[in-house]
Amino acid sequence: MAKSKVNFDPRLARRKMIGGVFYFVFLCAVMVGILSLLVLLTRILMEGLPWLSLGFLTNYPSRHPEIAGIRSAMMGTIWVMALTALFTVPVGVGAAIYLEEYAPKNRLTQLIEINISNLAGVPSIVYGLLGWALFVQIMSMGRVVLAGALTLSLLVLPIVILASREAIRAVPNEYRLGAFALGADQWQVIKGAVLPSAIPGILTGTILALSRAIGEAAPVIAISALVYLTFVPADPFDQFTVMPIQIFNWVGRPQDDFQSLAAAGIIVLLAILLTMNALAVILRNRYQTRSED
């Protein structure tokens, strides 16, 4: 006994030190993200806030920075976003349900799954060019809201499918077995047991995917490179522009005032984005408590 006491050296000081070092390293890793976000936000807010006003939201673009506004771009973004959500949610959730609940586990399913994961990593400009060729040229829709929304739908579909699958997979199998035991058929199980538990996750994934789409400039530029537009789309077959394109144009101008205007545009875009993210959180929390009752 006495011998083993000598042999075992707990080296407590050293272990504590290593523990402390890793704590510090991980804390730094967190701070890198948060600090750079804070620096960016402060800069943008300081530059853009004085330019933010009701007129900025309701005016059309202008060569005079004082009266230039983001109305056409903002409404374009909202239009595209709404249509994208309309296309993505049913298709994305449907695909996820099929893959998780119905699909047999064979080679073909595996191939489809691998492809969807890979598609989620394809650069957005590739989707832009695909959308341009498919919707604008081959289906000759023209450079309209619908073509933009369909292109962005292609871009976010893989993400929505992946997130929805995760959410569906997270539903405990006991729920399904319990429902089956009560005599429910496959669709009733999905409708009554799986979806209610999976909806918070599906919603979060979908809204985050849409938030990504809203900030994309590259694929939309391939569809519509319009910058000066003095009307708001009235239907899906109108021409449009979106906020990232407008902001990009302002940043490139020689006049300093336009740079500030771009900052103001970024604030509006951020506000829409964060509202959507908050919506995701709120919806998720609401459904959560309901399904736990």
């Binding site: 933010l52 900025f56 951020l270 506000a271």
Partner: peptide, 15 residues
């Protein structure tokens, strides 16, 4: 952000 938007309302007078 909501705070920022409210602040911007004051900023609009400047603009």
């Amino acid at each position: 952000l909501a705070g920022a938007l409210i602040a911007s309302a004051c900023g609009s007078a400047q603009a």
